[in-house]
Design a protein around this nucleic acid. Structure first.
Lengths: 341, 341
DNA sequence: GATAGAATTTACATCGTTGGAAACTTCCCG
DNA sequence: CGGGAAGTTTCCAACGATGTAAATTCTATC
C-alpha cells in the first residue's frame, strides 16, 4: 500500500514525473481545483497511490501562510471539565480537517497573559482561549492580531468572538428544578464573594432569581463560599454547612466537582440523598453519571460549545469579517437520582 | 514592546536590513551559532526587539525537515488517567521546547492502526503512542519509519522504544500491602479472562505471586471479570462479589476507576471501608486523593513515564541510533485511608 | 609588517508547495 | 471555417529560513 522507500521522501515532482504532467497540475489535483480533465486527474491520483505521496505540510504552510493547526488554551487537562472540553474540541476540529495544539495555563493570570503572545501563536492559525484568572481589567490583553475565540465568562465586550453558557438561566433552572420537587431550604456551595463577572456570580444570580420568582426569601446563611471548584472544596463547604446547624433540604453545587464533594460529605454523615437532602450540580461531567447516587446536573452543551468555538474560529481564519458574535448554546437539566422525588 | 504593524509580517530580511548585516547572520544569531562577534550579536538582537521579529516556523520546518511538534496518541482525554498523562507529557515537552499534538483513538483497534499512518504523521517529528486495543499480532503495524515511543503493555519486543510500568511487581506490592495489614480474602476487580499481555493479566500475575509468597491459597471466586476499566464496572463487579456471598476483607481494583467504583458500591451497602473491607487501586489519579475515604493506590510514576517518553522520543528524533530501550520507572504505594489499619 | 590560521560574515542555492498569468486546447457559433 | 470563449495545463517566481562554501576580517607569530 505504502510505496515509500525507507527515508525516501516523495514530492510533487516525483508524482508529476510519474504521471507525466507538471507539478502544478499535481497541486491542482490535490487541492480539488475544478478544471481538470478526468483522465488527468486519474493519472495523477494513480501516481500518488503508487508512490505513497504525502503532502509536505511545512511547505504548504509556508506558501499559504496557514498551518492548519489551532491552539486551545485551558487551565489544566487534569480538571475533568476541561479534559472533556478538549476531547470535544479535538473531535470538532478533526471533522473540519484541522488539528489542535493544547496549552495549559494552570489558571495562573500571568501564564494566561503569556499564552496570548507566546511563540506558539506563530504555529497556530488561531486560538480558542478559556481563561480563568483574567478579569475585566485584562480586556486589553485580548486585543490580539490573530483570530481568537474566548470561552467562559470573565471578560465581556471586546473585539473577539465569544462562546459562553447561559449561566444565569441555567442556574435558575437548576434551582427551579429543586423547588419543583418541594425543596425550600436550598444551599449554594462554591460562591465567590466579591466577584461580579465570573461563573460563580452569575450562577448565584440565577439562584436568587429562582427564589424570588417563587416567593422564597433569600437566606445568606445558605450560601457557602468556596474558592477552588474542586471536590475537596465541595466536601468542606458541605461540612461547614452541616456543622452550622443550618436547616437544609437541598444543595446546589456551582459545578459538578463541588456537588460530588457534597455527595461524599453527606455520605460520610449517613445523610440520605435525595431523601433528606437533594443535590444538583453544573457541567454534567462524566463522573456525574457514575456517582452514587448519580448526580443531577446542568448540561451546558459542551459539545455545542466546542463545535461552535471551532466553527467561529475557522470562519474568522478564513477571513470572515462579520461583526463579532457572542454565542450561548442551550442548556439542559439532566435529571438523575440525586434529585429524585 | 511589539513593534509589528497590523498585518505586517517581519522577516529575517527586515531584521538584517535594520541591523545592517546579512540574513544569514541574523539566522546565526537566532540559532546561537558560536562564532559571532558580541557587537554584531547585540545589533541583531536589538533589531529583533525593535521589530518584534518572530521566526516563521513553517519556513524553518521546511528547511530543516523538522516541525518541533510531537504527536501523542491516546484512547480518550475524558479518561482521567489519560488526561493526567497528557498533562504530564505536555509539561515535559514544554520544558524541552517542543509542543504536543494530541490524537484520540477511542481505544478502537482500527483507529489505533490509522493513527500510525495518518496524514498527521507528516506534521509531527515523532509519536508517543499509548495503544489499548492493539495486541501482539499487530506488532508489524508498529514498524514505522519515524521515531516512535510506545507506552503500556500490549505489545512487546519490536524496534521501538517502550516505556511501561512494572505491573507485576507493583501489583504484588499492592497485594502485599493488604496482606501486611492482616487481610487474607483479597478480591480482584477488573480481570480480563484470556488476556496474556495486557495490564490486567500482568497485574493479576503480581497478585497471585504475592499470595503464593505468603502461603495464601488462590481462590478463583475472588477474581471478578470486568471489561472496561470504568467506575461503573468497578461498582458492578463489587456488587456481584457481595451478592455471591463470597467472604472478602479487601478489594484490589486493577485501576483507580474500578477501585472508586468499588468504594461507591460499598458505601451504598453501608459497608465500612477500611473497617470491614479495605480497598486499594492502581494509577493514583487525582480523584483517589479526594474520594471518601481517600483511596490507597499505586503511583506508577506518571510524571516519570511522561518525561522519559518525551526524552527517548527526542533522542530518537535527534538521530540517536542506540539500541531500542525499554524503560520501567519505579512505582510507589501511596497509602491513604482506604487501607488504614 | 607579512602571513598562516582562525574567527566572522556573506552570497546563493534550495527545502516543497502554491498564486498568477501565460500558453495551449477544445468547443461552439455565426 | 475563422474567431472568441471557456476549459486545461504549464512556467516562473515567490513563501522565509538554513546549509555550504567562499569571502572577508581579525590575531598571533616570526
Amino acid at each position: 500500500m505504502n510505496g515509500t522507500g525507507v527515508g525516501g521522501t516523495v514530492t510533487m515532482h516525483d508524482v508529476a514525473a510519474l504521471a507525466g504532467v507538471s507539478v502544478k497540475t499535481v497541486s491542482n489535483v490535490v487541492n480539488d481545483y475544478p478544471h481538470i480533465r478526468p483522465a488527468t486527474r486519474d493519472k495523477v491520483k494513480r501516481a500518488i497511490d503508487t508512490l505513497g505521496y504525502r503532502m509536505n505540510i511545512s511547505a504548504r504552510s509556508l506558501r499559504k501562510g496557514r498551518t492548519g493547526i489551532i491552539g486551545l488554551a485551558l487551565p489544566e487537562l487534569s480538571l475533568p471539565y476541561f479534559a472533556e472540553l478538549a476531547d470535544s474540541v479535538i473531535r470538532a476540529a478533526e471533522e473540519r480537517g484541522v488539528v489542535v495544539l493544547i496549552e495549559q495555563t494552570g489558571a495562573d493570570r500571568q501564564h494566561e497573559l503569556d499564552v496570548l503572545t507566546s511563540e506558539r501563536r506563530q504555529l497556530t492559525d488561531g486560538l480558542i482561549f478559556s481563561p480563568l484568572a483574567l478579569g475585566p481589567d485584562d480586556a486589553d490583553a485580548l486585543k490580539v492580531d490573530y483570530p481568537l475565540v474566548v470561552l467562559g465568562e470573565r471578560i465581556f465586550g471586546g473585539d473577539w468572538d465569544h462562546v459562553t453558557m447561559n449561566n444565569v438561566d441555567a442556574a435558575r433552572a437548576a434551582t427551579q428544578h429543586l423547588i419543583d420537587r418541594g425543596r425550600r431550604r436550598i444551599a449554594v456551595v462554591g460562591a465567590h464573594a466579591g466577584e461580579t463577572m465570573g461563573s460563580a456570580a452569575l450562577r448565584l444570580l440565577g439562584y436568587q432569581a429562582a427564589l424570588a420568582a417563587n416567593g422564597i426569601p433569600f437566606d445568606p446563611a445558605l450560601v457557602v463560599e468556596g474558592g477552588l471548584w474542586h471536590r475537596s472544596t465541595g466536601a468542606a463547604c458541605t461540612e461547614q454547612l452541616l456543622d452550622a446547624q443550618v436547616k437544609v433540604d437541598a444543595i446546589f453545587g456551582l459545578n459538578d466537582a463541588l456537588a460530588l464533594g457534597a455527595l461524599h460529605a453527606l455520605h460520610a454523615r449517613r445523610i440520605d440523598v435525595p431523601g433528606e437532602i437533594a443535590v444538583i450540580g453544573f457541567d454534567d461531567i462524566e463522573d456525574a453519571a457514575y456517582a452514587s447516587p448519580t448526580l443531577t446536573s446542568i448540561s451546558p452543551g459542551r459539545e455545542e460549545i466546542a463545535a461552535t468555538a471551532v466553527e467561529l474560529l475557522l470562519a474568522r481564519i478564513a477571513g470572515g469579517s462579520e461583526p463579532y458574535r457572542r454565542v450561548i448554546p442551550d442548556f439542559d437539566v439532566i435529571e438523575r437520582e440525586s434529585t429524585l422525588v
